[in-house]
Design a protein around this nucleic acid. Sequence first.
DNA 1: CGGCTTTGACCTGCGC
DNA 2: GCGCAGGTCAAAGCCG
Length: 496
Amino acid sequence: MEPVDHRRVVNEMDFFAGDRTSGRHVKADDDHHVKSESERPGWLQDQAEDVNTGLNLLTTNSTASEKSSRNLKEKQRVNQLADVRAELERINAENQRLKLTLSQVNNNYHALQMHLVSLMEQQQNRIAESSEANNTETDKPMEDKTHGEGIVARQFMDLGQPAKAGKDEGSESLSEDRSPELSGSAGNTIVESMERREKKSTTTEGLPHPHGWSPNKAPKFNNTSKDNEEAQQTMAMIRRARVSVRARSEASMISDGCQWRKYGQKMAKGNPCPRAYYRCTMATGCPVRKQVQRCAEDRTILVTTYEGNHNHPLPPAAMAMASTTSAAASTILSGSMPSADGIMNSNLVPKGMMLPGLPSLVTLSASAPFPTLTLDLTHNPNQRPLNQFHPISPHWPHNSSSFPPHLFGHPIYNQPKLLGNFLSSQGNINELSGHLAQNQMRGHPVANTAAAITADPNFTAALVAAITSIIGNSHRDNSGGNNNSTTSRNTGDNNT
DNA sequence: CGGCTTTGACCTGCGC
DNA sequence: GCGCAGGTCAAAGCCG
């Protein structure tokens, strides 16, 4: 594994953080045309003075033609200044438009989220009324992973059925005060509650699946009510939702802070590169799995697809991924109709990029049997390799020989508070929007929003973290005692 | 020797 | 029903 070039990152950060009060474009113009004499750096003024002195022509023997020339230059400067101002105004207008778009997306997201929660509440109430009184787990806190009955519930979850490991939290599904140490992935809101409700209606029905987590083997529900069917379809789709990250890396696997053990490899059709299957081994029975495969068209691109959610506390290095779920999860949930068409027809989840100015950065595909959110980090205009994004997380063991490109090595990892907010179901879009605004306030270029965003490692890291962790959080309770494997448990660092 | 990777076999879903 | 493809299992081998 190649070491991360810290110095380069710092330089880039310094570059972006430099004294730029008017943005990149303005700065470029300033350097050549706009700045007045008084605004010029001292060395520039000195240089001008030296030139005049050296020629010994301008100051002592001013002619009418020279004055005319000066006036002409002044006019040119004025015109250029006006042009720059016009450009600034245009940029600001674009900025406002982008903000407005983000705001609208956020509002739509909230509306759909609340609507979904409401529907699921109604669904759960109906189920509760019709079900037997054997749901004795409803008073248990769902976060209590060490609770014996909670474990039992998780074992049921492993059947592919959502867990109802705790009490009904419909009303608190949006809360953020979930302990990250317990959850390992806070902000797991709607899906969580949905899965719990679903489990509540099914824990007495299913039989343990020998393979534990198995999204494609989700048991069929016996409940034939129309509402339940719809809910089941929705849940099935959400449970199968995946997050795919495309990034350039020469390493065999990107680091996300978790420990993985390879359990299979398969040649996929249409791709000469084999697809590797990994299972999270940070905890017994963790249902999270991921697939790693190189892109057939560009083998420098590594595609990592995550499924499932962690059922254990996560190290700080993995928190960003596991705890900032909700932005992208909500993206999927926003389109969480019982069919792929529902997603694609959603005004929240267009077929292409959701965020204006980020072409091909994030896409949601409904062509697959399950929604797959793809984060494409290969479109960075700087063509910056993934492993040069950020300083390495201090939590990552510095095993130089196996040092992976650290996708989530951004200092954001060390800001659980920020993450906690960021992962909140309401906060992510706002966070992204706020990040844009902050960049603009700092004087970051706004003329080319896409370039500005993709060039900003902070934004990229935040976006990556938010999207990549969707599934992990959204399925946090969809885990269980998956001890099916007779192979050994991974206790070492398998992130290579 | 424990833990991990490899890899062929097996299972399941889906389309024809 | 059959074949194909994706996904997983688990025995065998490798490695520290």
